[in-house]
Design a protein around this nucleic acid. Sequence first.
DNA 1: AAATAAAATGAACATTGTTCATTAAATGAA
DNA 2: TTCATTTAATGAACAATGTTCATTTTATTT
Lengths: 215, 215
Amino acid sequence: MFILFASTKQMTTANRKLKEKEELKALILDSAKKLFLIKGVEQTTIRSIAQHIDYSVGTVYVYFKDKNAILNELHIQGFAQLSIQFEVLRHVANPMERLIAMGRLYIEFAMANPEMYELMFTLKAPMEALNEADDEEWKQGINAFTFLKATVLECISTGHFKGHQPDALTFMIWSLVHGMCSLHISNRITGVRLDNAAGMVPAGFEEFILILKKL
Amino acid sequence: MFILFASTKQMTTANRKLKEKEELKALILDSAKKLFLIKGVEQTTIRSIAQHIDYSVGTVYVYFKDKNAILNELHIQGFAQLSIQFEVLRHVANPMERLIAMGRLYIEFAMANPEMYELMFTLKAPMEALNEADDEEWKQGINAFTFLKATVLECISTGHFKGHQPDALTFMIWSLVHGMCSLHISNRITGVRLDNAAGMVPAGFEEFILILKKL
DNA sequence: AAATAAAATGAACATTGTTCATTAAATGAA
DNA sequence: TTCATTTAATGAACAATGTTCATTTTATTT
């Protein structure tokens, strides 16, 4: 795809337009994010997004193929956010400590941003969207998992987790933390009459830490 | 609510009508279950259910308040099914073995009935329906959790899990198994490029067993 | 200023869950 | 059997939603 400019002036207006398009796209995304953090994904309609930014319904569809495309971008934003929170882990030299700190941060993120967490790790739509665009893969997820796995491998190389398979063990650790967050978000903890539902997740993680430290 | 019968004949016809109502209700449920095991919960419409059993849309609403009421009944059926699969555990005397066997059965159930599993442990609708009917609680979930906890307690009383809190530990174990199933069902395992996605869940559980046996 | 291109619009459509006045069927009394 | 009454079933109609697209508006270029 080629765009030819006859003059500098044309180029700058084209650049401005590009910028404006980016801005409106970002505006739609911000609005969508804000709304579904309050109302939830299902309750956030294209109409409500449009209304919120004083544009028509059709305009939203000029900038996004469909609702899933919006969810997809927010899904990516969520991983960017988590990745930023993970930054501090770079300063934790001891891999075992880092592993535990990572778990804590993961849980913190999930509890603070349940809707975002669901979008990232539970809802099927984002994964299906990836399958459709066939050269696309779930880079965000792969990155996060790779980071976790690298830490597990470091733990192994410092003498921990003897006799364990790295892949399966990494997956198991992820599952444990995800499972707690998932059960919390889907209201199964209160459902099962465990008091202090919010406190149960850290408590469960503490049990796991006790176990980890022995390995 | 009182129903008075003037004769035996009236009583029997009334009984027959009750039975017929039950049957049609069950027919709707069966159809709904069949459809959403194939199409998924969202894709199963009231119209498709009605069409499938050659009744009108309105009839479905005579027998069920709304779509959530149908999901709710299926939710209960799912727990009944899981509970039946758990029956064999009664014959496992050793609590540690029973705990492990329970995990395997849980995983088996989730992998074999992913849609049902989602309904039971992920979808929010059934929990919200419980909140509305205020004297109702999540009996199925409580039962299953209590069963798990009892086994954990037995393990403790036979010398395992020293220094652990029963509630938190039970929740942690549940979370681990649930997390693996949940990540599998939401396609996050394939997403993260772990080959043999279906095999990764048992593999992860094997890692956990290794750990458990040391405790 | 006119022609062209780009962007925004909102009416219209299809699909959903849901309601409810109407119709049909079954029942019980006379 | 007949007919009034109760019960069950119906499907047209409504509101809400995602989505499309011919039309209008705005911006840009000539």
